[in-house]
Design a protein around this nucleic acid. Structure first.
Lengths: 354, 354
DNA sequence: AGCCGCCATGAAAACGTTTACGTTTGCGCC
DNA sequence: GGCGCAAACGTAAACGTTTTCATGGCGGCT
């Protein structure tokens, strides 16, 4: 056993051929006799030869690595997203360089810059990116795909979650289930998802419950804000028949406020959230919500990016939108466990470690 | 704007110095006049020069990247672990190459091999690794740290969660709270964590409730198996006074079985789990459990690895163990919300996206 | 005044590949 | 038997750095 790793030269010498031939064989370029190929392969595996990626990247200009820049995501959302990306990347023989937990635009910029030259393309998921940001921090010709972003770029494809349609579907369900007065607990004003969800609520109310006054209480996506919103809603007269929160955590906070006040859910008031976090099905009563197919988002984004890397596949920037499904559980008094929109089986709760 | 990126040669030419001097300035090696430094820096930033990582790696043999090979982890555990690793890596100027969702030894082996030459070191978290696996798949001299692994290696440091001590602490708490007959729902027989937790249960019972017969029901970490175990436990005579499940999901399944049977928790029977998953505090009653500081695990592992990369810091293989805290909630009738073991503030539930 | 040594700098080798280009070989065809 | 062509293979340049070593100049010391 030598202490240094074998290089292509070692293989060439040992196989009595030139380095060019070794390279040709190992990259399957052809122009080499089957016999020579056999010998080269044998020697290569005998020496346990692995091509040096740095040298290869240097000459080819490709790294076979894609970078993912993600914000400070929590729990399921983060893990599902990475899962989707990772699986798709592996299927394409790409590696995944991750930089997560970015809070603030400077942080995100640093992450993007640090990846320069290390990746062939980037997946960027950050509320801080806009056209100027990209212009400034992204190398001229680097392919990139934006996730869940309001940016409309002619250069980069954007993949969004159809928050608006999800919200519309849920409001429609609530109204059709007999709850005309649907109140809404909004998310942070600056958050893109929150904005879209509120738009969906407004649009759906206008369409499916025309003439019913809108009730909107501010929230910020935290359980705490949901709790406060819940208490506030109980003071409204007339009391709304249903509450739709812009995310599950707020819905849960709201649920606690109702419980505390002795208000029965769904008997006295119906409740629904958004995201379908794992907890949603474990609170009492289980929470109706809008499910987002996060892993799909990651997978689609990666495939989109992979297509850009391959000059053969012609691609153009576009904004694509991934649908949501509504999941009806007891909290809104619907038929239990019925899923209304077309849905895919979802990963069931599982142990942390297998 | 040229179409190609500036190289060190461009900078050298433009600044009327040699490439060597540019390199020296940009790497802060000294031996260059302040005036020259100034000029070089100016030119470099004017040309927007970014050193090519491939070329740099080729000559230095370092990538400033570490690889993380992870199994099919779920939700919080995965995201917290990555968070810990990522934060520590960023602090050290290291990049993170992730390969997750590995099921099976072949999968893990492929992941490890694929990282060859792309990373300076590896973090390996997989129940499939053993001494032979490492011997076979890991390059001779590549530093690596093993997470949550039974492997005792003289070559690689191992970082474990102190499952045993956590279990002991919880059993002790249950017994001291007046529940002598503590039953245990075990995890998968082959799972390292599950084994350690069971050992802890056995040891603690022997020590703190000597003479009390052990009651152990099989489970496999799923909610379903916890439910079945719960039903089985209700048939035991005498009925145990407390149930300790090897993870939270089983405890929750068990809780549902008890609810269904009209058994009050904690009135009729106390209940505790392990992991402190987010759901634990949202079920009714909130679940007592053992908290694992996952982000800490990731951070420690990375720092350990970083130390190995630096030849200056002398390091030797060792097995280190990270403590757990027990978190007492209503499900075991303890003083509500009291945390017994020393604990750190934990990230509170937060919105999926901020 | 001469010498020694240090400091700033430059020239060039080295890292391990891929690939453009040139050379040999074998073969078929006239 | 000579000629040309294609297939197989080799040579060497190129990629963009870091780093070793050599060189020249300058100041201080004897």
């Amino acid at each position: 056993m030598t202490t240094k790793n074998a290089t292509i030269k070692d293989v060439a010498r040992e196989a009595n051929v030139s380095v060019a031939s070794v390279s040709r064989v190992l990259n399957g370029l052809g122009g080499v006799t089957p016999e020579t190929q056999k010998i080269v392969r044998e020697v290569a595996s005998r020496l346990n030869y692995i091509p040096d990626n740095a040298a290869r990247s240097l000459i080819t200009g490709r790294t076979h690595t894609i970078g993912a820049v993600l914000p400070d995501l929590y729990g399921e959302f983060f893990s599902e997203l990475i899962r989707g990306i990772d699986l798709a990347a592996r299927a394409r023989g790409l590696h995944l360089l991750v930089s997560s937990s970015h809070d603030g635009v400077a942080d995100a910029a640093a992450a993007v810059r640090a990846m320069r030259g290390r990746v062939d393309g980037m997946l960027i998921f950050s509320e801080y990116v806009d056209a100027a940001f990209l212009q400034e921090n992204l190398p001229e010709k680097l392919p990139a795909v934006l996730l869940d972003s309001p940016v409309k770029s002619t250069r980069y494809p954007v993949l969004n979650i159809d928050n608006r349609a999800g919200a519309v579907a849920m409001v429609r369900h609530l109204v059709e289930a007999g709850h005309q007065q649907v109140a809404f607990i909004s998310g942070p004003k600056t958050n893109f998802d929150a904005q879209q969800r509120e738009k969906g609520y407004r649009a759906a109310m206008t369409k499916h419950a025309p003439g019913v006054p809108l009730i909107i209480v501010d929230g910020d996506f935290t359980e705490e804000s949901g709790y406060r919103a819940g208490r506030e809603l109980l003071t409204k007269k007339p009391r709304p028949q249903a509450v739709f929160a812009a995310n599950d955590m707020m819905a849960i906070g709201c649920l606690f406020a109702f419980k505390e006040a002795g208000i029965d859910v769904p008997g006295d008031i119906a409740l629904a959230g958004f995201d379908d976090i794992l907890i949603a099905r474990y609170v009492t009563p289980p929470l109706s919500t809008v499910q987002v197919r996060i892993a799909d988002l990651g997978r689609s984004a990666l495939e989109r990016l992979a297509a850009m890397l391959n000059p053969a596949e012609s691609t153009q920037a576009s904004v694509e939108t991934l649908g949501c499904d509504i999941v009806i559980r007891e909290s809104c008094g619907g038929k239990r466990g019925v899923t209304v929109a077309p849905t895919k089986p979802r990963r069931s709760p599982r142990p942390l470690r297998t």
